[in-house]
Every structure is written in structure tokens, then in C-alpha cells.
């Protein structure tokens, strides 16, 4: 994840080092604090968490209801302490599909989905998801039937959204942990159907 810059010194890397030195000299951070941030970074954040929530919702209708009513409380039932934002889960149906974006920056429920992919932060995605979601979805290989209505959610405040995909056909016999393995990160954003 880190250290991929190798020994080739980029001008921007030198600029960052200068900034770091200034900040440390001004007493605003220590080497230890900076290292600590990176050591703890994303330790528990993973799309496996979001997938577990989805699999539980697929197998437990009462949990599904609670999840759609109060995402934070339902996530807490599975041991995920989602704090700092309101979690709102939006469910796909056979007639509707949900797609998430942050047009203003790149807001994203990191603890449940892991670090956001580069495409989520790209200008193209931020610009186009709200305007032509079908075209964007087709670039991800997703082609929805004509009648399916698309709801795009632009996370412009302190709510973070999570898509609850439809349970795939043919998974009736599967246990919850097996179901969770079917769920992809893109499915939780809405750029995949599951």
C-alpha cells in the first residue's frame, strides 16, 4: 500500500517532505503521531464489513427492516461501531437500482467499504454519475432492464449511503457467510448488481 514510490524522487514527494518538516518544526505533529496514523489506517476498514451486513439482511427479514430504518443501530448489532456519520442503507428492488456518488469531494463510508477506489474519486465519475448514470453503469458492464428506475444519491452532507443489492438467484441454499462472499464492493456502491 505504501512505499511504492521506490527510490526515484518525485518533485511532489520532496514538497511533501518539506511540508512535513515545517509542520513538525512548528510543533503541530510529531513523527510518532504521523506513523501512528498510518499504522492504524484502514486496520478494520474493509468491504467484507459491508458484505456481512448485506448477507445478514438477505437472510433475516427483521434485520433488513431494522437496517433500512436505522443503519447505525443495525450495523452495531453486528459489531460495527459506525460513528461520525449517519448510515443510510438504500435497497435495490427488481424495479429500482441505487447508485452512490459524492460530487463535491469523495465522501464514502470507509469503515464499511475500505479505502475508496480511484475511480470513485475521479472527475469523470463525480461529474457523470448524477447526469447519465446508465452510461456510467454500462462502463462498469452493468446493463439494467429499461424499466428499472435509477436513484442516484449524492452524499453532500454527513449521511453516508450503502446499497443493499438484490440477493442473486440460485443462492437460496447458501449460509450467511457464503452469501457474504458473493457481495462485491462495487455492489455496495451500486456500480455492480451484487
Amino acid at each position: 500500500m505504501t512505499g511504492t514510490a521506490g527510490h526515484e524522487e518525485l518533485p511532489v514527494a520532496a514538497r511533501v517532505r518539506r511540508l512535513e518538516e515545517r509542520v513538525i518544526a512548528a510543533g503541530l505533529a510529531t513523527d510518532d503521531e504521523l506513523d501512528e496514523v498510518l499504522a492504524g489506517l484502514f486496520a478494520d476498514a474493509s468491504p467484507v464489513n459491508g458484505a456481512r451486513i448485506v448477507a445478514r439482511a438477505w437472510t433475516d427479514p427483521a434485520f433488513r427492516e431494522r437496517l433500512l430504518a436505522d443503519g447505525n443501530a443495525a450495523a452495531a448489532e453486528l459489531g460495527f461501531a459506525v460513528s461520525g456519520y449517519r448510515l443510510r442503507v438504500v435497497a435495490n428492488t427488481t424495479q429500482s437500482h441505487n447508485l452512490l456518488v459524492c460530487t463535491l469531494c469523495s465522501c464514502y463510508p470507509v469503515s464499511l467499504l475500505g479505502p475508496s477506489p480511484s475511480w470513485y474519486k475521479s472527475f469523470a465519475y463525480r461529474a457523470r454519475a448524477v447526469r447519465e448514470p446508465r452510461a456510467v453503469l454500462s462502463e462498469f458492464g452493468v446493463r439494467l432492464p429499461e424499466g428499472v428506475e435509477i436513484s442516484v444519491w449524492d452524499a453532500s452532507a454527513e449521511t453516508r449511503y450503502l446499497v443493499l443489492p438484490n440477493r442473486p438467484a440460485g443462492t437460496e441454499g447458501l449460509a450467511e457467510d457464503e452469501l457474504a462472499r458473493h457481495v462485491t464492493r462495487n455492489g455496495l456502491i451500486g456500480t455492480a448488481t451484487v
Partner: peptide, 25 residues
């Protein structure tokens, strides 16, 4: 209070059948 407000694509862009929901103070 922050509200989730839903806009129709046809009104935002003059085209499209989708909706866009935005969180607004």
C-alpha cells in the same frame, strides 16, 4: 436540520428518467 431532497433528472438536465437525491442544510 439537513434534508434529503430528491430531484428529477429531466428537470436538472432536460433529459433522463432517473432521480438524484442530495443532502441539503
Amino acid at each position: 436540520t439537513v434534508y434529503a431532497v430528491r430531484f428529477r433528472a429531466a428537470e436538472l438536465w432536460g433529459t433522463g428518467t432517473h432521480s438524484v437525491t442530495v443532502d441539503l442544510w
